[in-house]
Deep mutational scan, measured.
Amino acid sequence: VSKLITEALSVSQERVGMSLVALKKALAAAGYDVEKNNSRIKLSLKSLVNKGILVQTRGTGASGSFKLS
């Protein structure tokens, strides 16, 4: 899941990052079952932020906008 998230964010052209909703849409378009794996998406977002791979530009927790650091 982390690999899919970083790939989706690297393609994004948004300056402020990608919102959680837009990220879920991009994952669904890539063929990932978002409804079934919603908790996995949130956990991997939090772990990527803690590792310093992603930066959360808006919001708290697993909601808001994210971009690559």
Rank of each mutant, 00 (worst) to 15 (best):
V11I: 07
S69Y: 15
K42T: 11
A8T: 03
A30K: 12
S2N: 14
S69C: 06
V49I: 12
L68C: 06
T57E: 15
K67V: 09
A30C: 08
A8L: 05
A8E: 01
S63H: 13
K67Q: 10
R15F: 05
V1F: 11
K67F: 14
S63N: 09
L48W: 03
K24C: 01
G31M: 06
L9Y: 09
K24P: 00
I5F: 04
I41E: 00
R40L: 10
E7W: 05
A29V: 06
V16A: 14
L54P: 10
L27C: 03
V34Y: 02
K51L: 05
T57V: 11
A30E: 03
K46G: 00
A29M: 10
S47R: 10
L68P: 07
F66E: 12
E14W: 01
S19G: 15
K42D: 10
K46F: 03
L68T: 11
A22T: 05
G61L: 07
N38V: 14
S63K: 12
V21K: 15
E35H: 08
V21G: 14
V55S: 14
K42R: 09
K42A: 09
I41P: 03
A30T: 11
Y32T: 07
K36T: 04
V21M: 12
V55Y: 08
I5N: 01
E7H: 08
I41M: 07
K51H: 05
L9H: 00
S2K: 15
A22I: 01
K36H: 03
K46A: 12
G64D: 12
L48A: 01
Q13W: 02
V21A: 14
L9T: 13
V55Q: 08
K3I: 01
K36S: 05
L54W: 10
F66G: 08
S39F: 01
L43M: 11
L45S: 01
A30F: 04
V1Y: 05
G52T: 08
A22V: 04
G64S: 14
N50Y: 10
A8D: 00
S10N: 12
G31I: 04
K25M: 01
V34D: 04
G59M: 08
A22G: 03
R58Y: 05
A62R: 10
S63W: 11
N38E: 11
R58I: 10
M18K: 15
T60E: 12
N37H: 14
V16P: 03
N37T: 02
G31S: 05
